[in-house]
């Protein structure tokens, strides 16, 4: 698809350089951003809504918005902040839409994009584990995913952005348009809730 030279070209550029180059008309720069962020963004949305098809769809929508509004991008934020913010808003809309559907009678629910009730769609790497360990690990992950999903939205976002996407407090604050102090207290609350929900499964599987 692309030549090696072009692939290397965008890899040495920063996000800022790429987005500016794209705004100036360089389509290759946009492809660079897509290559760089398609997996993290898909993963992020997938963790939030646990429906792979839908996560891919929303990840594409995220990039479409980056494409359309690139000239509105402000350098006061990092590019990653901006793209996570778009993805977060799309995920929030989707979660709201699903919640509305769940309160509707069954026959009104839409079944087009994936399942309304999330199913386990992670493939877990169990290499190097004994079968019983692998089973426990799998079970724990399933409970963690369920627990994350059951968190109130504001706690869930903070937790996923911090613990899974590894963003610093300040960037999470920018993504969610709140203060670092709010991030701190929500994170504390999220961890507390998860700890309670997972109490039964923590410190198990270790001898």
């Amino acid at each position: 698809m692309e030549s090696t030279a072009l692939t290397l070209n965008w890899m040495v550029l920063t996000d800022d350089e790429l987005i500016h180059s794209f705004v100036e008309g360089n389509q290759e720069a946009f492809r660079g951003l897509v290559s760089k962020y398609k997996d993290p963004i898909t993963h992020y949305i997938h963790v939030m809504i646990r429906d792979y098809e839908c996560a891919v769809d929303l990840a594409q929508e995220t990039f479409l918005r980056v494409y359309k509004h690139a000239d509105a991008y402000k350098t006061t934020y990092q590019f990653s902040t901006w793209i996570y913010r778009i993805a977060t808003n799309l995920a929030i809309d989707e979660i709201r839409r699903r919640r509305r559907q769940m309160t509707q009678p069954l026959e009104n629910r839409r079944h087009s994009s994936g399942t309304a009730f999330p199913t386990e769609s992670y493939i877990i790497d169990t290499r190097g584990l004994r079968p019983d360990e692998a089973l426990i690990q799998k079970e724990k992950l399933r409970y963690l995913s369920n627990a994350i999903e059951s968190l109130p939205r504001k706690y869930r976002h903070v937790f996923v952005l911090k613990e899974i996407q590894d963003l610093p407090y300040e960037e999470i604050a920018d993504v969610l348009s709140c203060s670092s102090g709010t991030v701190k207290s929500r994170l504390h609350r999220a961890r507390g809730l998860l700890r309670k929900k997972l109490a039964h499964y923590l410190n198990r599987g270790k001898v």
């Binding site: 997996d39 898909t42 993963h43 963790v47 891919v56 992670y122 724990k140 992950l141 899974i164």
Partner: peptide
Amino acid sequence: LAKSIPMTKA
């Protein structure tokens, strides 16, 4: 545990 959630790929 959260970090061990397998990375979803596009």
